[in-house]
Design a protein around this nucleic acid. Structure first.
Lengths: 114, 114
DNA sequence: TCAATAGTTCCGATTTCCCGAACTTCAGGA
DNA sequence: TCCTGAAGTTCGGGAAATCGGAACTATTGA
């Protein structure tokens, strides 16, 4: 296993953030991690909504989120603990992540209602 | 030529917006159109930065922006006039577009400086 | 009617994405 | 120490998206 890559905050690219969050599974995972008050395991997301996500796809999704600089992952025994990097990103791109998460929540509300 | 598709504002998807703006050429085009005080022709972007964009690719880029709901395109004689749909999107996803455009400008500044 | 201009469409080559199968790593047991 | 199971990663091949040159369409002006 190669070591996990985490870009330093000044290497984080807007392009990579938008690409990472332009996938419905990834934005759902990230919203959960960002909203949680403790680290989340990868396996917590073996299904998102009513959709089952294969392990290999899940692993790729976490890699994309990680390498975009959105989350920090740390191996803890047999599992992985994932936390968001919101505070750092807030410094670099103020208001970006809150706006995206708000939009995501707004959309989820209207699709439940409609 | 098939008619141009513009989603109604309630059909605009966050996913589509983020995907459209996750491309460096498209976000540059959109930032220009959003910042302009008059409609912009497609051919105004036949090069972005120092990079030349082939006509067919440019056409695809405009299609992606249009179908994501980010711009409205209207044929005016032989050319196309493109305007942003920021006001409508602001109603649906408050603060989203300004945050992305701010981040885009912040990034451009640091890459010139660095 | 002809030529020029602005965009679009087609299509083949390249790239990226998806996911099953095999693999690695680690933590308990026995 | 050697199993066994659990949690993720990597590999590889088929599916899907992207890129761009060439041909096409639509409109204007001479």
């Amino acid at each position: 296993m190669r070591p996990l890559l985490h870009p330093s905050i000044e290497d984080v690219r807007l392009e990579a953030i938008l690409h990472a969050l332009s996938d419905p599974v990834r934005v759902a995972i990230f919203a959960d991690i960002a909203g949680a008050d403790c680290p989340q395991r990868c396996s917590a997301f073996s299904s998102v909504g009513d959709r089952a996500i294969p392990k290999s796809s899940l692993s790729q999704h976490f890699k994309v989120l990680r390498e975009a600089g959105l989350i920090r992952s740390e191996r803890q025994g047999v599992e992985m603990r994932n936390i968001s990097r919101c505070p750092e990103i807030q410094e670099r791109f103020p208001g970006l992540i809150p706006a995206i998460l708000d939009a995501h929540m707004a959309e989820r509300k209207t699709e439940r209602a409609g």
